[in-house]
Design a protein around this nucleic acid. Structure first.
Length: 486
RNA sequence: GGCGGCAUGGCCAAGUGGUAAGGCAGAGGAUUGCAAAUCCUUUACCCCCAGUUCGAAUCUGGGUGCCGCCUCCA
């Protein structure tokens, strides 16, 4: 089996093969750091994190580059509102981005270039485009001439002559007046009074949005990369323009594969800053949704399809994760021991089948939904074991031995999806402002006594009292009482 | 208007020619003083119409509905 991926460039799902055998270069369009990331960003970056993890797991050497857009009108606007500076706003949001990604267990990119630190490469690229006649200057701005690039529109399926007509009514404003064609776009923007600016052969100013990606891709990964990633909303104009710039300059293909993720919707509409219907990653995590629940929620749908964000769907994912997490926690316990080769062999057939089904699902354009189904099925026996072993069942402990290999596989496959055991809430977990373990044990003993005396009113009162303090009691067969700190 | 995508049980969501994975919720049972948790069992003919085929959720054509992009956007 080989990995098949849907390439936006060809609109087909094709077998993936990197330019250099065994090595994959990937570039992902990052964020404009004017604000916190929301669930749309989370979805996108989780999807590509899974692609990266899967490639690594499959034995590829992967170089992953993601940029920060730290020069932008919105950053300037934000800085002006705060009486701050572009640098401070950017720094703050880059820090937040790093923290949010780490919280979601998204592997950090190998390199994360910033527009402000890539100006030489940007200016060089603009210069080349101008030398080749693909760009023209106008009042301190420099524009890319889309009509000079034969392939323009190949990614988004646009036809320039038709677009010309459709765009006629929109041509207005000074920038539009300077353009030769409505779809021409700025490579370099001349500085307006009071704006931060950088020197250039065309006068002080700053780079346009699209050019930075072209410059960074070339600088960090070379002329032609294997995979370029981004949200479907970037196909036009951003990615189309990136292709035009890079390919006009180098004469070579920019990226062999273009992968685009579907949008996160709220009530049938795209989640976005402008619509104001967004939830930040931070806010969601702070409201009590765990990072792994969010990952599960995202991964249960295929990455190219729209994903509707609802509290119901999220709650379903939370419950689903609770069960999977229990299995993973046990697996981490069981899988860590050294049990010898004899037990490993016992479950090998079942395991290799699971591994195969998982790979087959992932090979099919990253069918994480199907891959998760495999994971849930593998986790099932572990879950039931987890529940039995808690009451010290000797038989269960013996089974645990036999399931050692299975535990490792479950952890391994979960890891490919970036899912890891989360939050130790069983006895022994750290108390944060709640009753201590000793206090809980005492209360349980008290309730036990009340139950023995058939004083159920008192027993229920103790239980309710603990629940108020965030401690949930679970009676197990055999008279034992377990508890969870929620 | 142009380009692209989607429509599967109460909800989410796989499935791309041979009689529908998985998760959540629900139901029944076991267990329990009760509850929770857990375990077992269980719930669909796939938007509509026509066609291709021995056979279609899966292919073709036509509808209907919804979404994204065409302006900054993951």
């Amino acid at each position: 089996m080989t990995l098949r991926l849907t390439n936006s460039l060809t609109r087909r799902t094709e077998p993936f093969e990197p330019l250099q055998p065994g090595q994959v270069s990937m570039y992902c369009c990052g964020v404009t750091v004017y604000d916190l990331c929301h669930l749309g960003h989370a979805r996108s970056y989780i999807a590509w994190d899974v692609l990266r993890r899967y490639l690594l797991w499959s034995g590829y050497q992967v170089t992953f580059v993601q940029n920060y857009t730290d020069i932008d009108d919105k950053i300037l606007k934000r800085a002006a509102e705060e009486g701050s500076s572009m640098e401070l706003v950017s720094e703050r949001n880059i820090d937040a981005f790093v923290a949010d990604m780490a919280a979601l267990n998204i592997l950090p990119a190998d390199r994360m270039p910033r527009a402000t630190q890539s100006l030489d490469a940007i200016r060089e690229l603009i210069g080349e485009l101008q030398a080749k006649g693909a760009a023209y200057g106008a009042d301190g701005d420099v524009y890319f001439a889309v009509m000079k690039h034969a392939g323009y529109g190949k990614l988004s399926g646009r036809d320039l002559s038709e677009q010309q007509q459709n765009a006629d009514g929109r041509v207005s404003g000074s920038e539009e007046a300077r353009k030769h064609h409505p779809f021409d776009f700025a490579l370099w923007k001349g500085a307006k009074p009071g704006e931060p600016s950088f020197p250039s052969p065309w006068g002080p100013g700053r780079p346009g949005w699209h050019i930075e990606c072209s410059a960074m891709v070339r600088q960090e990964l070379g002329t032609t990369i294997d995979i370029h990633l981004g949200g479907a909303d970037l196909i036009f104009p951003h990615h189309e323009n990136e292709i035009a710039q890079s390919e006009a300059a180098t004469g070579q293909q920019l990226a062999r594969w273009w992968l685009h993720n579907g949008m996160v919707n709220v009530g049938g509409e795209k989640m976005s800053k402008s619509l104001g219907n967004f939830t930040t990653i931070r806010a969601l995590l702070e409201s009590g949704t765990s990072a792994m629940t969010l990952r599960l929620f995202v991964l249960q749908a295929h990455y190219r399809k729209p994903l509707d964000f609802t509290t119901e769907a999220l709650a379903a994912a939370a419950t689903g994760w609770k069960g999977l997490n229990a299995a993973l926690q046990l697996a981490a316990q069981v899988g860590s021991g050294d049990w010898g080769p004899a037990t490993e062999a016992q479950a090998s057939d079942l395991l290799s089948e699971g591994r195969l089904r998982f790979s087959a699902a992932m090979d099919d354009d990253l069918n994480t939904s199907a891959a998760l189904a495999v994971l849930f099925e593998l986790a099932k026996p572990l879950r039931s074991l987890a529940n039995r072993s808690e009451r010290g069942d000797a038989h269960a402990a013996a089974e645990a031995l036999a399931l050692h290999a299975e535990s490792q596989l479950v952890l391994e496959l979960a890891g490919v999806l970036g899912l890891k055991p989360e939050g130790e809430s069983r006895p022994g977990g750290a108390a944060i402002g709640g009753p201590s373990e000793a206090e809980i044990a005492a209360a349980i003993a008290e309730r036990q006594a009340a139950k023995a005396a058939k004083n159920y009113g008192e027993a229920d009162r103790i239980r309710a009292n603990l629940l108020d303090q965030g401690i949930e009691l679970i009676d197990k067969p055999g008279g034992l009482t377990d508890w969870l700190r929620g």
